[in-house]
């Protein structure tokens, strides 16, 4: 138990990731307003990306832009660039899905006149 608490204390990024991830998930499950649900979805997306970027950090390393192009490169001097590439793709795709979801919201509002989930269900019946 003490080990676990110490492990969490040494990884504040992971603790932040877990809190924001669960909070966003909870909002997606419980709120009626569709825009609030999308806010929760955005929190979940960005928290996972935050965790991936935190993994790539190295103590005492600099940004992954080579300082010298003639000497051999020491990998310890630069942070891990691979998660950065994967998360760049994930951010852009996440915003693309968010755009489609918001367009769906606008279409729903145009047809039903509300963004409240329960009222839409009532009008559907």
């Amino acid at each position: 138990m003490v080990d676990l608490l110490l492990a969490l204390f040494q990884r504040p990024n992971f603790l932040t990731f877990v809190i924001i991830f669960l909070w966003g998930f909870y909002i997606m499950l419980t709120r009626y307003n569709l825009v609030k649900k999308l806010v929760g979805m955005y929190l979940v997306q960005t928290s996972v990306i935050f965790f991936l970027v935190s993994i790539s950090a190295k103590q005492g390393a600099t940004v992954p832009v080579l300082l010298t192009t003639t000497d051999p490169v020491q990998a310890v001097d630069y942070v891990n660039p691979l998660p950065h590439v994967l998360t760049l793709t994930a951010i852009v795709v996440g915003v693309a899905t968010l755009g489609v979801a918001l367009a769906l919201c606008a279409a729903i509002y145009r047809k039903y006149g509300t963004l409240d989930e329960e009222e839409i269900l009532k009008k559907l019946q």
Partner: peptide, 15 residues
């Protein structure tokens, strides 16, 4: 969390 590598460790598996 206990099994994760230290953040910032250059010898961690992802790096």
């Amino acid at each position: 969390a206990n099994d994760l590598p230290q953040f910032g460790d250059p010898q961690s598996p992802p790096s």
